[in-house]
């Protein structure tokens, strides 16, 4: 029975994950190394990488920075009425429940060229839909929960006592944050940031809808993969897919390392406490 279950597990993993991934590798190298390199250095591929990188950097900066501030206010801010907090908590989770296509569609509805806001921004010469700002907004929407979801529980767990002590002893707000709060939330922030980076690089549906997928203009790596697959460009699609796949695996390894590190820290902490 035991052997049967273990083999069944191996079989499922091979069937569902390992075996299909091997097809990306063979697809990418169908025409050898030169085909692989050529597919990655096509002008449209290089342009798509640039756009993706741009989105990842801007979204990560915004969502990490504001995510930290948001978590701090959500946990520590006593200006919020008691009933407001659960509402905000629920709102933060919403992006996880929304289909990516709808995530993109919302932005078209709100900032499209025929809407009030769209016309307003266009009068300043800024296009939101079918341009970078819309793609960034869509990705920001999709990745918003990651940092907040990691930081809030930690802030709740450490409590306010130490911060209050620091403030009573005359430390400024900024100094309290830097020397007391930050050390305990830095790893959750990193963890959330890695998730944000991975997701904003990999986001497909929302970006496809908002960007219009215009080659050499608003095309990201994932939407180029989609277009290549649509045009039966096997080597092109698989080469880029392989790179994205490797990045996902590295991301998982990093997250795994961070998790293990946190567990070690926690067990050290608890053993100190028991002594």
């Amino acid at each position: 029975m035991r052997k049967l279950l273990i083999s069944a597990t191996w079989f499922l993993f091979i069937l569902i994950i390992i075996f299909p991934i091997s097809f990306i590798v063979t697809g990418a190298f169908e025409e050898g190394w030169s085909g692989f390199i050529e597919a990655l250095t096509r002008p449209e591929a290089l342009h798509a990488m640039k756009i993706s990188l741009y989105i990842v950097v801007v979204v990560t900066i915004f969502n990490v920075g504001l995510g930290i501030l948001f978590s701090l206010e959500l946990v520590r801010g006593n200006w919020l009425a008691r009933w407001v907090k659960p509402v905000i908590n629920a709102i933060i989770d919403l992006p996880f429940a929304v289909s990516p296509v709808i995530g993109g569609f919302m932005i078209i509805l709100l900032y499209g060229p025929e809407t009030v806001l769209g016309i307003f921004f266009a009068s300043f010469g800024v296009d939101i839909v079918f341009a970078l700002p819309g793609m960034i907004l869509a990705t920001m929407f999709v990745t918003f929960p990651f940092v907040v979801r990691e930081v809030v529980p930690v802030l709740e767990e450490i409590g306010e006592d130490v911060e209050e002590a620091s403030r009573t002893l005359g430390a400024s707000k900024w100094r309290t944050f830097r020397q007391v709060t930050w050390p305990s939330i830095q790893w959750p922030v990193v963890y959330g940031a890695v998730l944000t980076i991975a997701r904003s690089l990999g986001e497909f549906g929302a970006v496809l809808v908002v960007s219009g997928n215009i080659i050499n203009q608003t095309q990201t790596v994932t939407t180029l993969v989609y277009q290549d697959a649509d045009y039966f460009n096997v080597v092109g699609a698989n080469s880029l897919a392989l790179i994205l796949c490797l990045i996902s695996i590295v991301t998982l390894l990093v997250l795994d390392g961070l998790k293990r590190r946190q567990e070690v820290l926690r067990s050290e902490h608890s053993s100190e406490g028991s002594v």
């Binding site: 597990t9 569902i16 390992i18 299909p20 990516p100 994932t222 993969v225 698989n238 994205l244």
Partner: peptide, 23 residues
């Protein structure tokens, strides 16, 4: 295997699509 569990979640969906298209 335990670390591999999360891969389908981490993989961009366009990549997963191409993968099954190839298979």
């Amino acid at each position: 295997l335990n670390s591999l569990v999360d891969l389908p979640f981490a993989l961009p969906t366009a990549v997963s699509g191409v993968m099954f298209l190839m298979v």
